[in-house]
Structures are given as structure tokens and as C-alpha cells.
Simulated assay, not measured.
Amino acid sequence: MIKRCAYLLAIGLIVPHLAMSDTLRLPSESRIAVQVIDTLMLDTATPSRANVLLKPVVDQGAMHALPAHCLITADARLVEGRMRLSANTLTCIGVMGDTREIFSDELSAAAYDADGEFGVDASCIASSDQGCQRAELRPEHAFHLKLGKALAIEAQDNPSQRLNEQRRRAGQASDTQAGDTQADDAADATGEAN
């Protein structure tokens, strides 16, 4: 009886794990390290920008990591010398051997700097009596995105992977066919020689 219960328990623990393998998951309030791809400049005349591109980076202070091949879009605003970034979308390509899975969905996350403060402490390059008038955020400045809610993105259909599999199968079939033709030609040559 105990063996049966242990067996059922093992199956119960393994099956959900297998079901989650095609899902990108991060818990609520996860912190992931990112940086801008291009230098971001904001000033009082243009205090905001949409669709700023971010990418994940390796950071020891981050609680969680994303696959290496990810792009995040965010909206940025200059507020009192700090850049406030709100992430909107996430697209990742997870690579496991020859398999490539695509994960893409909306994202709700806000930027926090290393000091734990909301927003990123950008470099002020022009200031006045009213404070920072122009600031920039360079790619080498890593910061954290803190998720507002848990994330669970299912892997999407990957048409290029299907096409590559079809090509591989077609290549294997033609290799097999070529091998059969060569074997037939060798057999014919042997028969003619006799």
C-alpha cells in the first residue's frame, strides 16, 4: 500500500513539472536585471519616450533571470532627475539544444535602481535652478525591473523551427535515397562484372 501511495505521489510531483516546461514563469515581485540597449536621453522639452528597448543582464543582486535572448519594451519619463521606466512587453527566445521556444506577452514591471529607489538615477548632463533639465541613461547602467504580478507565458508556435525540422527530414530522406541509389549502382556494376 505504501509503495502505491509513493508511486502516485511521485507521478503527482513529476507531471506538473513536465507540464510547466513550455512556460516561462516568474513570481510576483521578482527582480530581474536589465539595461537599455541604446543611450536614452530625456529633457524638459521631451520628458518621455515610448518603446524604449531593454535587455536582460547578469547581475548578482537580481532575484531571477530571463533567457539570454530577450527584448523588453518600456515607457520612460524624466521626473526630478530620475528616469521612471514602466515595462510593457516581453519577448524571449529560449534555447534548449536544437529547440527554440518563443515567449511573448504583456509585462507589468517598474524600474528600481541599485539604491532600491523607484526610478533609475540617470546622469544629469544639464541642470538649472529648477533641477535636472537633461538626463541620459547609458547601456552600461544596469538596474532592476520589479514585476507587479506573477508572469506565466506559454511557448508560442515557432514556424521557423517547424520549417527547419521539415528540411532536416527531407535532407535525411534524400540522403537515404542517395545511399540506396549508390548501393543499387554498385550491385549493378558487380553483376555486369560477372
Rank of each mutant, 00 (worst) to 15 (best):
Q161I: 05
V120M: 06
V79D: 15
D75L: 08
A150R: 05
A189E: 02
L151T: 09
I32R: 01
R31V: 06
G119T: 09
D105S: 15
D75W: 07
I11Q: 11
D188C: 00
H144A: 09
V79M: 14
G94K: 15
H64M: 13
M63S: 15
V95T: 14
A68D: 06
T176W: 00
C70V: 07
L53F: 03
K149H: 12
L40D: 06
R77D: 13
L90P: 04
L107N: 01
T23P: 08
A187R: 03
S86I: 11
C92K: 04
L145Q: 00
K3G: 04
R162C: 03
A170V: 15
A6I: 00
Q177S: 06
P16N: 05
R4Y: 00
A122M: 13
G116I: 05
E29H: 15
Q182H: 03
G61A: 11
C132R: 12
E80M: 13
L71A: 11
L85D: 12
T99W: 09
V79A: 14
V52P: 04
V52L: 01
R25L: 13
P16H: 03
S104R: 07
L90H: 03
A74H: 04
D184S: 02
D22T: 13
I102F: 02
D184W: 04
A178H: 04
L13M: 12
T89V: 09
V95E: 14
R4P: 00
T73I: 11
E80K: 15
N88T: 12
S104G: 06
D184G: 03
D175M: 10
A187I: 03
G191M: 04
A189C: 01
K149G: 08
E29R: 15
L13S: 10
R134P: 12
D175C: 06
E117P: 03
E106N: 07
I153P: 05
L151V: 10
D185N: 01
Y112N: 03
L147F: 05
E106V: 06
D59E: 09
G148Q: 07
P67W: 03
C70S: 08
N51T: 02
M63T: 15
P139A: 10
T181Q: 01
H17W: 11
E154V: 02
L137F: 02
S160K: 07
L145S: 06
S108I: 09
P139C: 09
A155Y: 09
R82D: 07
I32D: 00
Q166C: 09
P139Y: 08
A173E: 08
N164D: 12
G97T: 05
T176I: 02
R4A: 01
A68L: 04
V95S: 14
R169C: 08
E154H: 06
A152N: 06
I102W: 05
L145F: 01
I72N: 09
